[in-house]
Amino acid sequence: MPLSLAHQSLEELGGHSSVLARQRRDHAELDRLMRHCESTGPSRAERRATFQEIVRLTFSHAFAEETVLWPALRRLVPDGEELTARVEEEHQQINDLVAEILSTEPNGPWPERLVAEAFALIRQDIRDEEDVLLPRLQEALGHDAVRLRRLGSAWESVRRTAPTRPHPAVSRRPPGNALAGVPLSAVDRARDALSPLTGPRGRRLTTALTAAVLAACAVAALRHRRR
């Protein structure tokens, strides 16, 4: 059985710029942020700010996986379809939970139960990736550091321009997610920059903006299929 990423040295992972090392760093940062959010010290405002950091990292990270890594795993590993379907289901569950959390009133009570469920799913997703999917990808690539670094560069490029918020209606696979990614990323990053805009008016504005983008993406996907 392939060795979990958690028990491998940086050299075994293919070096600092390997996709495996990049994934593990993101996972470690997510764990740090979740533990900080769960601690009794932070105020409600600090908890919400930390949660927003978790959301941005979680969704850009997952989008890059679904666009770059899981298609490679399906091509290279005989049971890649089954493996990626399971983790995509986890991503969808996280998506739905986080969307529900973000819909709660910013000045209302902290949604403790929903956040705990979301964090449990994120941690399970990290374990599945580090213990199963990524070691299988590493094995399929023959532990080739050059190929792992190239994949890491592609993954990082997508992550830096990926959506940063949940979008339950968007496909988890190419080409649907790729077609939606660029416009949704622009919307998300604008919303991140304008995060003080809250309340019913802010929610109506961002909902309308996202709906317009999704409609444009649906038209683009239809045109792509007709070619």
Score class of each variant (00 low, 15 high):
1 M>C: 15
3 L>E: 14
3 L>F: 14
5 L>Y: 08
10 L>F: 15
11 E>L: 11
11 E>Y: 09
11 E>K: 11
17 S>Q: 12
17 S>E: 12
18 S>I: 07
18 S>G: 08
22 R>S: 01
24 R>G: 03
24 R>K: 09
26 D>C: 07
27 H>M: 06
27 H>E: 13
36 H>N: 08
38 E>H: 10
39 S>A: 07
40 T>H: 10
43 S>V: 04
50 T>F: 07
51 F>A: 00
51 F>C: 02
51 F>D: 03
54 I>M: 02
58 T>C: 04
60 S>T: 05
60 S>L: 03
61 H>V: 03
64 A>P: 05
64 A>G: 04
65 E>M: 02
69 L>P: 00
72 A>S: 14
75 R>T: 04
76 L>W: 14
76 L>D: 15
77 V>G: 15
77 V>C: 13
78 P>L: 13
78 P>Q: 13
78 P>H: 15
78 P>E: 13
79 D>A: 12
79 D>Q: 11
82 E>D: 13
83 L>R: 14
86 R>S: 14
88 E>F: 02
89 E>G: 15
96 D>N: 15
98 V>E: 00
99 A>V: 06
100 E>R: 00
103 S>N: 01
103 S>H: 00
104 T>Q: 01
105 E>M: 10
105 E>I: 06
106 P>H: 00
109 P>A: 09
114 L>E: 05
117 E>G: 02
117 E>I: 05
121 L>Y: 03
123 R>P: 04
130 E>L: 05
132 V>D: 10
135 P>R: 08
136 R>M: 09
137 L>E: 03
137 L>S: 00
138 Q>T: 06
139 E>I: 06
141 L>R: 05
146 V>P: 03
153 S>E: 10
153 S>H: 11
154 A>Q: 06
156 E>Y: 08
156 E>Q: 15
157 S>N: 10
159 R>C: 03
160 R>T: 07
161 T>I: 02
166 P>I: 00
169 A>F: 01
170 V>S: 01
172 R>C: 02
176 G>D: 03
177 N>K: 13
177 N>T: 14
180 A>G: 02
181 G>K: 01
189 R>W: 14
189 R>A: 10
195 S>M: 05
195 S>I: 02
196 P>C: 11
204 R>G: 12
204 R>T: 11
205 L>V: 07
207 T>Y: 05
214 L>I: 05
214 L>K: 08
221 A>N: 04
223 R>F: 00
226 R>T: 07
226 R>A: 07
